[in-house]
Write a protein that binds this DNA or RNA. Sequence first.
DNA 1: TTTTTTACTTTTGTTTCGCAAGCAAAAATA
DNA 2: TATTTTTGCTTGCGAAACAAAAGTAAAAAA
Lengths: 146, 146
Amino acid sequence: MRPEFRCDCPFTSALDVLGDKWMLVIVKQMLIEGKETFKDFTESDEAIATNILSTKLKLLEELGVIMKTKRPNNKKTNLYLLTDKGLALTPLLVELAVWSDKYLRDIHPTIVNGEEMELLRSDKMAFASAIEKKYKEKLATIQYMQ
Amino acid sequence: MRPEFRCDCPFTSALDVLGDKWMLVIVKQMLIEGKETFKDFTESDEAIATNILSTKLKLLEELGVIMKTKRPNNKKTNLYLLTDKGLALTPLLVELAVWSDKYLRDIHPTIVNGEEMELLRSDKMAFASAIEKKYKEKLATIQYMQ
DNA sequence: TTTTTTACTTTTGTTTCGCAAGCAAAAATA
DNA sequence: TATTTTTGCTTGCGAAACAAAAGTAAAAAA
């Protein structure tokens, strides 16, 4: 796997890999919404098509952003879990949300605005740490093939 | 202009607007590489096609991320400058570079690795502040139609 | 006055996206 | 045990986005 990088710029190279409509949305669904199975993703608000989901999950796995595994007692359902490389995208996702919160409300007034946005506004690093910690605890708790 | 948002999630909404191959690359070229004119962009490492460049510049302007203006003594050449909304993308760009630096080198070894990466690694917020400050100083210095 | 530069648009592919349908294996149910 | 449902895909096809090449028109430079 070599996603054909445009040049040697670190900014651009990240976008060569993540810069599309779906890659970071899938990571967000795993990190924030706890989605783990193919089914989980298809039932999302964002309504991703199954062929695209399939393609992107493969890409994310090849990149090492997610791992594909199973629960010990289920041979059918695949479990998709974030790796360290995937979890390291948390600060990036947080910056996306911070920018949306500040600058997108004028053209998209229905962006969610609940209590959970308070911590994001007052201390984005604490917000990032909290969701990272939560995900790591989950990884330590659930059973899956390693 | 209403870029058809998939849902009310702040993460996803940012990606509805910025999640493609070019939007953030153009912002980066302005912020980091000082590109200001159509010509400047066409001469980039990333080699954007002129039709796409034209479309994306329009989109960025409609979004309020950039402004299109001219120098007082030149009726031909357009000047593209970042607005506050565009400058506010600095922390996001910095996170992209931080992640590339840490996690993309194994599959893309020629990513630039000069002295400027040191500050990024040791203090990313200082790095972000430095480039934001530099851009603001430039805005205060150059002449353009307001 | 002619040439060059700048900022595009147009044309014509090609690739990616995305809906709908289909399918096979595993799991759940009767 | 047999049948139905669930899960995780793949396939086919139309639509949209992307991209290379060429063309254009106005301004600036020579």
